[in-house]
Simulated assay, not measured.
Amino acid sequence: MSDLSELNNLLADDPEFVEIVKQDLIDGQRRNPNNHPRYFTKTFFHHPEELRAEVEEAGLDSEKILAIEGPGWLLQNFQEHWNELGRRDRLLEAIRWLETEPSILGMSAHIMAVAHK
């Protein structure tokens, strides 16, 4: 679960939104009671270990949980970094190091389960 993108948008200055984020952290459920367009939609945020448990409860063998963006999405001027070939290679290498690191999986805005039957 990650609400870091909201910090980048200065929504942390909005008292109504701050209450929504506090609830996100309590039960993982995002609710947007006033359908405010900047508050995102109704959704459920998984902690990485919750996703693994859900996959296993479905009768699948969880192979790994991966970060989709990892911490790279926090870079300012991402496109500028990505367009420089040498820097892109270093970013991709760092992503490979970090994509399965349990201590930072929840930092990614999205995670993915890889499993088999």
Rank of each mutant, 00 (worst) to 15 (best):
M1P: 15
L4H: 09
S5E: 06
E6R: 15
L7A: 07
L7S: 03
N9E: 08
L10W: 05
L10E: 06
A12Y: 11
A12D: 09
D13N: 10
D14P: 11
P15A: 12
P15H: 06
E16Q: 12
E16T: 11
E16D: 12
I20Q: 11
I20W: 07
K22H: 14
K22L: 13
D24F: 14
L25D: 05
L25G: 10
D27V: 03
D27E: 04
G28I: 07
G28W: 10
P33H: 09
P33G: 10
N35T: 10
H36Y: 08
H36R: 08
R38T: 10
F40W: 12
T41Q: 09
F44A: 03
F45L: 12
H46Q: 00
E50F: 00
E50R: 02
R52M: 05
A53S: 15
E54V: 00
E54S: 05
V55S: 06
E56M: 04
E57M: 05
E57K: 15
A58S: 13
A58L: 08
D61V: 07
E63R: 07
I65P: 01
I65E: 00
L66V: 15
L66M: 06
A67P: 02
I68V: 15
I68Y: 01
I68R: 00
I68S: 01
G72I: 14
W73C: 07
L74F: 09
L74S: 08
L75D: 02
L75P: 01
L75R: 07
Q76C: 10
Q76P: 14
Q76F: 12
Q79T: 14
Q79V: 12
Q79A: 11
H81C: 12
H81Y: 11
N83I: 02
E84S: 09
L85M: 06
L85P: 12
L85Q: 11
G86K: 15
R88I: 01
E93I: 02
A94L: 14
R96V: 06
R96H: 11
L98N: 15
L98E: 13
E99Y: 05
T100Q: 09
T100I: 01
I104F: 03
L105C: 00
A109Y: 06
H110R: 04
H110V: 03
A115R: 03
K117N: 12
K117D: 12
